[in-house]
């Protein structure tokens, strides 16, 4: 039985005169945890936007969860894909609280005229509890710290009950303690739900230890891919980042 949930062939994406992805091909199997690393501007975020249907292909094809992305079906697919971006600056006076923000996760599947059911309300409460911010549920979303905000974003994505989980630098711009807690949470979620997960980072110390496969991107291309053991080598990383990139103690755990 074909277990492939993402299949991208020769994808090219361009933003005006800049080509962000140049002929990228990728297959992802159900339940895989994939780390995507590379320097800034490598095309990591663009690859995620292709998968959730927000990036427009000017060449190539992409199948996600059995559907070929054609520009018109992205909305339906996004209901089944959880997306967490890096911490954004938001207006502290925004009139929406943490619980309402997390609840947004189920609005896509509910449809325009649907109302959240009691079961969905309960799920939101359970997820808030799971990510450790139940005590903040009535707080305005703009009053959270970076780490708390990321927990809320992860909770919102979980409420979607996603089949694919896309994490775009979820630990960027937050302090080290919060980074470790977020990583621990992401790994816990993957172990619990076995959701197909793609985790983007440019910071090697932030790679979760449960990565099944690493994709190394550079200049809009997949430069190399393989197991953490085969890719996390000093000479490979130094060539990828164009600067000495010693394999830090934090990521050697991935290799064992």
């Amino acid at each position: 039985m074909d277990n492939t949930v993402i299949s991208i062939q020769d994808a090219v994406v361009s933003y005006r005169e800049d080509v962000a992805l140049q002929g990228v091909s990728l297959e992802v199997e159900k339940g895989e945890f994939i780390g995507i690393i590379g320097p800034n501007g490598a095309g990591k975020t663009t690859l995620l936007t292709v998968i959730n249907g927000l990036g427009r292909l000017i060449h190539g094809q992409a199948w996600v969860l059995g559907s070929r992305l054609n520009g018109g079906n992205g909305n339906d697919l996004r209901k089944r894909i959880g997306y967490v971006a890096q911490v954004e600056r938001i207006d502290p006076r925004l009139p929406i609280n943490v619980r309402e923000t997390v609840m947004v996760g189920c609005y896509g599947r509910l449809g325009l005229f649907g109302r959240p059911t009691r079961a969905q309300q309960k799920t939101v409460d359970e997820v808030l509890e799971m990510v450790g911010i139940a005590h903040l549920s009535r707080r305005p979303i703009g009053h959270l710290s970076g780490g708390e905000y990321q927990r809320a974003a992860i909770a919102r994505a979980l409420v979607q009950q996603p089949e694919i989980f896309l994490l775009d630098e979820p630990t960027a711009s937050i302090d080290q303690k919060a980074q470790r807690e977020i990583l621990r949470l992401i790994q816990l979620i993957h172990k619990e739900y076995r959701t197909t997960t793609l985790f983007v980072t440019h910071d090697l110390r932030m790679l979760p230890s449960i990565c099944d496969r690493l994709i190394l991107m550079k200049d809009g291309r997949i430069w190399q891919q393989g197991s953490p053991q085969s890719t996390l080598r000093e000479e490979v990383l130094t060539r990828l980042f164009g600067a000495p990139a010693p394999v830090a103690a934090e990521i050697t755990s991935l290799q064992t």
Binding site: L77, A85, I96, T101, R109, P116
Partner: peptide, 22 residues
């Protein structure tokens, strides 16, 4: 009728798009 979608879009437009709200 569309309170929940309006709230999502005016407060978190990018998120609303990412969860499949039109």
């Amino acid at each position: 009728v569309f309170y929940k979608e309006i709230q999502a879009v005016i407060c978190h437009r990018e998120v609303a798009l990412a969860v499949g709200i039109p």
